[in-house]
Computed example of a mutant assay.
Amino acid sequence: MSLLITLDALQTLDAIARRHSFAAAAQELHRVPSAVSYTISKLEEDLGVELFDRRRRKAELTAIGRLVLEQGRHILKASEELTALVRQAADGWEVELRICIDSVLSCDPVYELIEEFQRIQPKTEIRLSEEVLGGSWEALSDDRCDLVIGAAGEATASGVALHALGQVNFEFAVAADHPLAQLPMPLPVSAIQDYPTVIVADSSQHLPTRSSGLLDGRSRIIVPSITHKIAAQCKGLGVGYLPVHRIAQELAVGKLTLLTLDTPPPLGDISVAWQRSNKGRGLKWFIERLKQMQFDATLGALTYRR
Rank of each mutant, 00 (worst) to 15 (best):
L3W: 07
L4Y: 06
T6S: 15
Q11W: 03
T12S: 02
L13G: 02
R19E: 11
S21G: 09
R31V: 02
P33R: 10
A35T: 15
S37Y: 13
Y38F: 12
Y38W: 10
I40Y: 01
I40P: 01
S41M: 04
S41P: 00
E44D: 04
E45H: 13
F52Q: 04
R55A: 08
A59W: 00
A78R: 12
S79G: 08
L85Y: 08
R87K: 15
V95L: 13
I101V: 15
I101C: 11
S106M: 10
F117K: 03
F117M: 06
R119Y: 09
R119N: 11
R119Q: 15
R119A: 12
I120M: 14
P122Q: 07
P122M: 07
E125S: 14
R127H: 12
V132G: 01
W137Y: 13
S141T: 14
D143S: 14
R144K: 14
C145Q: 06
D146E: 11
D146S: 11
I149W: 01
A151G: 15
A151P: 03
A164Q: 13
E171V: 13
H178W: 08
L180S: 10
L183S: 08
L187H: 05
S190G: 03
A191R: 08
A191S: 15
Q193F: 04
V200C: 07
V200K: 00
S203G: 05
P208T: 11
R210T: 08
S211A: 13
D216Q: 14
R220G: 01
V223M: 05
T227I: 08
H228N: 12
Q233T: 11
L237H: 11
G238M: 04
L242N: 06
L251T: 04
V253D: 11
K255G: 01
T257P: 00
L258P: 02
P265R: 04
L267V: 11
D269L: 13
I270C: 10
V272I: 12
R276N: 15
N278L: 12
K279I: 13
L283Y: 04
F286E: 02
